[in-house]
């Protein structure tokens, strides 16, 4: 099938790639741009391992076509840290042992960051419902929820 030329911005950098119109944004990020931070856990929008934001909106990149990225702004886990300075969520995830195998971590970090952007002071319940689309099979979520709440508290204090 004819490939389509797509120009887009990923984590602040303008990039371009050729996409088969059937390919997902997740495939394009991983296979065309070499950005393997977003993971495929299901390919059907059920696990959230592929979470990225498109123009600030949290999406499952396995449900978005690569060609839809044309002219958009994409943020992935690879763009969360500023150089060697980790985002507070990233730091708190390590500190709280909020990852075991870590395959769900990129998606959960992107989703949690999107939550805190619109609600800097979420209750535990709100974090649990916001992250209900991000499956983690290892942790039972306890330490993940604690890490998100702790990062939110720290970010509110503006440390």
């Amino acid at each position: 099938m004819t490939q389509i030329h797509v120009t887009t911005t990923v984590n602040g950098d303008e990039v371009d790639f050729l996409a088969d119109p059937r390919e997902t944004l997740l495939d394009c990020l991983r296979d065309k741009l070499g950005m393997t931070g977003a993971k495929e856990g299901c390919g059907t929008g059920d696990c959230g391992a592929c979470s990225v934001t498109v123009d600030g909106r949290l999406v499952c990149s396995c449900l978005v076509l690569g060609v839809e990225a044309q002219g958009k702004t994409i943020e992935t886990v690879e763009g969360m840290a500023e150089g060697e300075k980790l985002h507070p969520l990233q730091r708190k995830f390590i500190e709280h042992a909020a990852l075991q195998c870590g395959i769900c971590t990129p998606g959960i970090l992107v989703a949690a960051k999107a939550l805190l952007a619109q609600n800097p002071d979420p209750a535990e319940e709100e974090v649990r419902y916001w992250l209900a689309g991000n499956l983690c099979r290892c942790t039972g979520y306890d330490k993940i929820i604690r890490a998100v709440l702790d990062a939110a508290a720290e970010m509110r204090e503006g440390v």
Binding site: A38, K39, T76
Partner: peptide, 19 residues
């Protein structure tokens, strides 16, 4: 202590099977 593979895993650098 922090796990040694922590930074790789929160920044998306850790390489899994499909990576």
């Amino acid at each position: 202590p922090d796990r040694p593979d922590g930074i790789d895993k929160v920044t998306g650098k850790a390489r899994y099977g499909a990576d």
